[in-house]
Nucleic acid binder design. Structure first.
Lengths: 201, 201
DNA sequence: GTTTTAACGGACCTATCGGTATATTAATTT
DNA sequence: AAATTAATATACCGATAGGTCCGTTAAAAC
């Protein structure tokens, strides 16, 4: 979408590769604490001049927001796919646990949760996007749980909403520990333990 | 201790009140994200000049470290007191839950967990102190659980160490949510849910 | 070929960061 | 009273932050 709406125009053609730049940005933000990655550093990494970057992304807020969007599309979607399959809890919970604690893709944690943790340091656009993504995640978990409820696979005394929040937070905790380099097996044990609480009255 | 070791010396006497300054620092760090409180801002808050502050605390690292130490003594000790009482899990867990989710003292979250979350932004002294405090917390929980184990009040398949880590993380999650202004009852529900997992095989 | 349009990037802006040099002041010691 | 010692605060340091000015250049339109 980012290069589909480029109409043939007059003037000097843009040499800055938006997708490549965004990829570098996502990688840099993901690998560190997003707030610790300066525009200056990013320009050097992406081999792009600062004015060019600003022309395309308007502001730091615009860049972080675009980076989060790209991340959500390319990475976070995996979780939504798992939930969308509507498989039984006995399969879905281990899948989520495996993803959060052992998937090499999540070795450096999760950019979404990193941004959520440091929300106050982000610009207004990005903050809103973080909130929206969080809401979408809770909704997806809630929809999954409600589906399992109608099938009789889940019959907690908890509301689906509460359980959904719980899942989002516990997975977030695991991915945050992942980012800090904690032992994967310990993370898995912790997450498994936390999620057993969902499968009992 | 900070003013007990002041010997009568020559030269101009110190007018900077170390305890009062430290109190202001703890409050400022606690109320915000520690990394977002600059030395400049702190000097204005405490009505102290920057060179004076540096003379007493040597560096920003020294100040944050002292602040964390003060916080641990005055606030964190409450948790150690609860654990030290060696009361049954059926009393201790609700007490911890109440403390983390409803105690007005924890309204702005916990300075220790805030610093732990942003550890990489702190100086080496303070980082070490965070690690030591974390270790001490895990040890205290572990000792408590082992005690309850010998009494037969706790008989999990889990090791005391794993359970201790779990407790530290879950309480940390609750206090982090507290800092972000989440609803207290939701935090309590989440924490209760997480801690039920400890009381079953 | 000339004009128009827009992307290019080096140099620059202001604000703020952690940290300090220095001249001054207030006390103790002699 | 004079000399010594140390705390005071103003004014500064270099580094870096996010963001932009503006002269240059490369294309399309005429």
């Amino acid at each position: 979408m980012s290069d589909s709406d480029r109409k043939p125009k007059r003037g000097r053609p843009q040499t800055l590769d938006e997708d490549a730049t965004l990829k570098v940005a996502v990688d840099a933000y993901w690998g560190a604490d997003p707030a610790d990655v300066s525009i200056n550093a990013l320009c050097k990494l992406a081999e792009v001049s600062k004015p060019s970057l600003y022309r395309v992304f308007k502001s730091e807020d615009g860049l972080t927001c675009a980076a989060l969007g790209s991340y959500a599309e390319t990475v976070l979607s995996d979780i939504f796919v798992i939930l969308g399959q509507r498989r039984p809890l006995s399969e879905t919970i281990p899948a989520l646990t495996e993803f959060a604690s052992h998937d090499p893709k999540m070795e450096r944690g999760c950019l979404f949760y990193k941004m959520r943790a440091g929300k106050h340091r982000l610009g207004p656009q990005t903050q809103k996007r973080v909130e929206d993504l969080n809401g979408a995640a809770v909704d997806a978990f809630k929809a999954y749980l409600e589906d399992r409820q109608t099938v009789g696979d889940w019959n907690g005394t908890l509301s689906a909403k509460t359980a959904a929040h719980y899942l989002v937070e516990q997975i977030g905790l695991a991915l945050t520990q992942r980012a800090s380099g904690a032992d994967e097996d310990m993370i898995a044990d912790t997450l498994k333990l936390a999620l057993t609480a969902l499968q009992r009255p």
